[in-house]
Amino acid sequence: MKILTCPMNGPRNINEFQCFGPVKNDPDPATTSDADWARHLFRVDNSRGVITEWWRHVPSNYFFLAERNATTNEVIRTFTPQDAEARP
């Protein structure tokens, strides 16, 4: 079983976590066209390289971000959402 390092709880088995999928940018509803909004709804970053995802440590309900290689499954780093400059 893979290990994921929670910024709050340290390294834990990955079955303690729930993945909430790649980070999406929030378009502004006021300025976004219907077509772009639909794209926002259904499209997810599915590239084979490094993706940035939301994860939840389920027992502690802690949400954080992880950079993970979607092909090798290597976790490059995990960090807190407050780490603003770290967000892509």
Partner: peptide, 13 residues
């Protein structure tokens, strides 16, 4: 698997 991945490795879980 419970998260996106492009690998054909299998798991014990």
């Amino acid at each position: 698997d419970p998260y996106q991945l492009c690998s054909t490795r299998s798991t014990l879980d």
